[in-house]
Design a protein around this nucleic acid. Structure first.
Lengths: 217, 217
DNA sequence: CATCAACAGTACCGTACGGTACGGTTCGCC
DNA sequence: GGCGAACCGTACCGTACGGTACTGTTGATG
């Protein structure tokens, strides 16, 4: 699991409003977008609809705020302080893979992705690009730093960093994310994230690893 | 592009009803789920709401029928008749990759996936599993046959066929499908499907190809 | 021509939701 | 204590949608 900030970090809203956003996320996770009515949020959060509209403008503003709020809780940490060896690079990659899979499988993440995808056709995909920017881009920065550190240490060989990350991502996730979004029983799939990550990293190292990066499995 | 049956093949519904389903799909593609109202479908298809309910039961029945109807139009073709060489295997894999990407990027496919994902939280994901079964499973059979033919010809080495296909799928698609579902401007991404497929197949062959399968690029 | 089934078009109903308005309450501030 | 801002709870409004009922109209069959 990625680091969660111990304190909400006061991103954009007051503590009271953060509580409301928490309730809204809970509601969304439990019942899907259909359950996310303004009256329902107000009831669940013990606030009035009038306050909702004062704080967030309208329903879309509430949705945007929910995405921003959730993104503000997901923290990526730099794990490239130490100098990399073949073993530690592999370990860090496997750790990254596990974290990535667990974030993608999180119920809040799944609910928000479903929400954004559902709205993608309508409103010019504002929510979709928000999720992209605040979600994948952020986690991609961590992976990119790790990959470049591996290259600097002579353990990885690649030309374009984004291409390498794209390959790594595909090897780790494949269509698992989409299957979960479609509602495939994730309970059955969730619990070999460790093994899945190891296999993906192994394949990635076979593709992009230098000679000196080989690690006996 | 995958083969489209020249004749609708009379899957489950009458020609008149197929026309209605076509109109409904068109409506969904143009305006998203919000635009897919029963009155809208009836107007677009020049039929009455009463007929819609008689034919499809209720709105969910209409959605299911739309998925089934669209799936019935996508035909996978067997391309493993000839005996495989290193070159033809690579060509078939690249062709498969291109077809896969173009299917996933199709506007009807994207609209239906968005629809199913949007409903995944509510109804026990009936539409989601339908899409899985009729879509990915179907296209996966073609890939699976190709992979096994490659193994039989001594060009590929793998233990579990599904694992190998999962890897191939991840290398080809990565998170491109999700990005398109989120509304990322596909126009910018769409047109190097050929190159993307070639690179993915090249990586796949490096992972799963036997000695004798090496092809100079 | 009479009959009957299928269907289009439309009017209608109940409900649910987004958004607004208002009375009552709490709480900080002078 | 008096005042005003923030806010809760609720009532309210307009609209849009899913689903049903009704009235023709067509077209095939005997």
């Amino acid at each position: 699991m990625l680091q969660l900030a111990a304190y909400p970090h006061q991103p954009d809203y007051s503590p009271r409003q953060n509580d409301v956003l928490d309730s809204a996320l809970r509601l969304l996770v439990d019942g899907g977008e259909k359950a996310l009515t303004t009256a329902g949020v107000a009831r669940a959060a013990n606030c009035s609809k009038e306050s909702l509209y004062k704080w967030f403008g309208d329903r879309d503003g509430l949705l945007s705020a929910m995405i921003g709020f959730q993104a503000s809780k997901v923290r990526t940490f730099d794990d490239t302080a130490e100098t990399l060896t073949a073993v530690t690079l592999q370990e860090h990659l496997v750790l990254f893979a596990r974290d990535l899979l667990e974030v993608l499988a999180g119920d809040v993440s799944l609910a928000l992705n479903r929400l954004a995808i559902g709205q993608a056709s309508r409103d010019g995909s504002k929510l979709g690009s928000m999720l992209q920017e605040r979600g994948r881009r952020q986690i991609g920065k961590r992976a990119g730093a790790l990959l470049e550190a591996g290259r600097d240490a002579g353990l990885l060989v690649f030309g374009d960093r984004d291409d390498a990350y794209d390959t790594l991502y595909g090897l780790i996730v494949s269509d698992l994310h989409l299957r979960m979004l479609l509602g495939e029983d994730s309970g059955r799939l969730v619990k070999d994230f460790g093994r899945r990550g190891e296999k993906a990293v192994s394949a990635f190292l076979r593709l992009y690893g230098s000679e000196k990066s080989s690690v006996q499995s």
